[in-house]
Write a protein that binds this DNA or RNA. Structure first.
Lengths: 189, 189
DNA sequence: CAGTATCCAGTTTGATACTG
DNA sequence: CAGTATCAAACTGGATACTG
């Protein structure tokens, strides 16, 4: 596959998409989250071809997102479970589901709600929060080069982003309090 | 393709994936979030073929995720911007990026960090929170049929999930001696 | 610039049949 | 059950050249 040749991409989103950016992988993970464990159940729920299913499951196991462990109901058989790595996808998955509920459904077509087990209350929307727990909007975000920004594979991109960042006019945030940083960057010209 | 024929899927994740479940759409949105606006810049940054790029952009505009508006720098030209709907993908996008940073990179290969504009601090990990702002794990979640659960297209599935839910043993969450701690974080490595 | 128009190779997918 | 094997068909994506 001319897939973004594994691990050559430097952007984390791109790398994630190397694993998940196809028609089925995300849905399989959704299934596992919802408790599906067995081959034929995946096949039945999703209507995916069996050979494709086998390949996708193998790829997800291979990537470390799923693993096979004995089933609780029948310890002689194996079922697919999330690894810790796979579990880490939960926020992204829920965010995507909520987005779909919000923008691709009408209020009365939402088929499944995610609730807190303890209270039965519907899960609040996943949000971007600052360190004080306050919601952040896109305009309050920025990005900065990370440790790997110098990698030849991405340095040009980072440079381009830096330029865009300088070019695009952005409102200065209301920063009434002290400025802990010695040099404020991104001086708009 | 027998793509999950648009809007026939009932699951919100599946619907979202009808729009975004390919190799490029998510990356295009990432680009827009990072400030890319112009056709040739997308092409240069991603190395995507021009015809494919045109098709994907059109599809995203069509879906209501992107729209064309005059550029700030040159009001005679149009550039791609996020709509409110597209903006709503931000939590999912950031969650995915953070997941990639955590699981697909080493600490020194992370190319871009997302930071708060006001403070320069790196964004905390996107988490699932309950209504009190406390982090939730997967075991503390459950799901329940939504208003659209009766739809013939999904009713069997919901029934299957209901059954799984009853079968799979799940621990009761520890009794919450909830203390309103203002901040909870967790980014191991 | 910002796309279109062609052409084509390589992949992904589904249907089906088969095995342990 | 849980896959594997095979095959044809559908589709995606890339290269390139062209247009307003």
């Amino acid at each position: 596959m001319p897939r973004l040749k594994a691990n050559t991409s430097t952007c984390s989103v791109a790398r994630a998409l190397e694993l998940l950016g196809d028609r089925w992988s995300f849905l399989l993970i959704r299934e596992v989250i919802f408790g599906t464990r067995r081959f034929d159940d995946f096949a039945a729920h999703l209507g995916i071809a069996r050979n494709v299913l086998a390949a996708k499951l193998a790829a997800l196991v291979d990537a470390g997102i799923l693993e096979q462990r004995p089933l609780h109901q029948d310890a002689r058989r194996l079922g697919y479970h999330l690894t810790e790595m796979g579990d880490g996808l939960l926020p992204a998955m829920v965010a995507l589901l909520q987005w779909g509920d919000r923008w691709l459904q009408t209020p009365d077509t939402v088929p499944l709600r995610i609730v807190e087990r303890a209270t039965g209350a519907e899960l609040p929307p996943v949000q971007l929060l600052d360190h004080a727990g306050q919601p952040l909007t896109r305009r309050e975000l920025d990005w900065a080069p990370g440790p790997g920004a110098g990698d030849p594979g991405i340095a040009p991109l980072v440079a381009a982003y830096e330029k865009q960042r300088r070019v695009v006019p952005r409102p200065i945030p209301p920063a009434p309090t002290a400025i802990p940083r010695p040099n404020a960057k991104g001086k708009p010209r």
